Simulated assay, not measured.
Amino acid sequence: MRISAIQMNQTSDKQANLDQARRLIEGALAADRPDMVTLPETWTNLGGGREARAAAAEVLPEPGGTGGAAYEFLRGIAKGAGIHVHGGSIIEQGPEKFFNTTLVFDPTGREIARYRKIHLFDITGPDGTGYRESALYGAGDALVTFEAGGVKFGCTICYDMRFPEQYLALRRAGAEAILVPSNFTLMTGKDHWEVLLRARAIETQCWVIAAASWGAYEERGATRQVYGHSLIADPWGHVVAKASDGIGWTTARLDAAVTARVRRDMPVLEHRRLA
């Protein structure tokens, strides 16, 4: 299976973000012919405060129903191109709070997975900038996996990557690859992004595919920066594809033989004693 991780520089303008995503996906399809594309975290909105998030949020339909603009965009790309689409995450309108939610569609346009981010980003960064995701978002409480192209994928989102127990649980649930759509801050990204993703790949012996947002965005009058550097790591922890600065994409082939060899030669799951 070939997969392209799309790297965006989204803003608080939902329609502009939809247009940017379409251009980048079409570019990846033409250049690399992937079987799946994956988008960053909250790719329909970054910045602008509560009002912008509310404007971007969508009430998700029951299976088979009609959704909002982002939902139908993802479904349309999947069906039109005949590929699997992992929709990074969008803002889901819940009854009381938003949810940071992943949607996955198969090549017929059928929704096959829906995951709500479990670990919410409530920290003060090294530069003193505060983030409190739980002020607006509720937390998910369920692991989610799906199959595509003969590969079993696990779903995570951004800050989840700092909790290896979630990744181990996905490996135990049969995952061979784990998706990590992200808006990783520049300050933490330059030190932790690649280290954490490679560690999760090594520990779980899974492919790790992380589509990320890059660049500057405005948040309540202040400029913030996200790190980008979308990457794909193999089950040995090698980074086999990586995006540079700027918008674009990176593509790699997930080779089942590599997964099998790594797990055969170092059967760490069989050797575990404490968890």
Rank of each mutant, 00 (worst) to 15 (best):
I202D: 11
R198M: 12
E111Q: 06
V144H: 00
H192K: 15
V151P: 02
Q15S: 14
H271V: 10
G68M: 04
R33K: 14
Y131S: 12
Q20H: 11
Y115R: 04
D191K: 14
D19P: 08
P164L: 10
W43A: 05
G189M: 02
Y217M: 00
V258Y: 10
R116W: 09
G215K: 02
S213E: 11
A57I: 03
F105H: 02
G88W: 02
D265P: 09
T101D: 04
P267V: 00
P63H: 02
G27D: 11
T204H: 07
Y71A: 08
A21D: 06
L143Y: 12
T108C: 10
G82N: 05
I6D: 04
A113P: 00
G88P: 03
H86P: 11
H192R: 14
L74M: 10
H84L: 12
T124S: 09
V226H: 05
H229W: 07
G174V: 07
L18I: 06
A148S: 11
A57L: 07
G138W: 04
T42S: 15
K79Y: 09
W214T: 09
S12P: 12
R110K: 14
F163E: 14
I118N: 07
I77K: 05
L274Q: 13
R253W: 11
E111P: 03
K97D: 12
I112R: 02
H84W: 15
D265A: 13
W43Q: 02
G174D: 06
R33Y: 12
L24A: 03
Y167Q: 05
K14A: 13
T145Y: 06
F153H: 04
W43T: 01
A175T: 00
T11E: 03
T102K: 10
G149H: 09
Y71P: 03
D127A: 07
G76K: 04
L103A: 04
K97G: 10
G76E: 02
M187I: 14
A222Q: 15
F121L: 13
D141T: 13
D191P: 10
P34M: 07
S134E: 08
Y71G: 05
P164T: 06
M8F: 07
A16N: 11
V195R: 15
H238E: 15
A199C: 15
Q225F: 14
F73D: 09
H192T: 13
T259P: 00
E41C: 13
Q10V: 08
N100K: 09
F146Y: 04
L103F: 04
V258K: 08
M161W: 11
A201T: 00
I6Q: 02
T108S: 12
W249R: 03
A275T: 13
E26G: 09
S182T: 08
E219F: 04
M161T: 13
R200N: 12
L46Q: 03
R224Q: 10
G174M: 03
L269Y: 13
I209V: 11
T108V: 10
Y115T: 06
A216D: 15
L136R: 10
Q7D: 04
I91R: 00
E111S: 01
I157T: 05
A55G: 11
K242M: 12
T124A: 10
G189W: 01
E165C: 12
Q10G: 12
W249H: 08
K79W: 07
A243C: 14
G246C: 08
Y115M: 06
G215D: 00
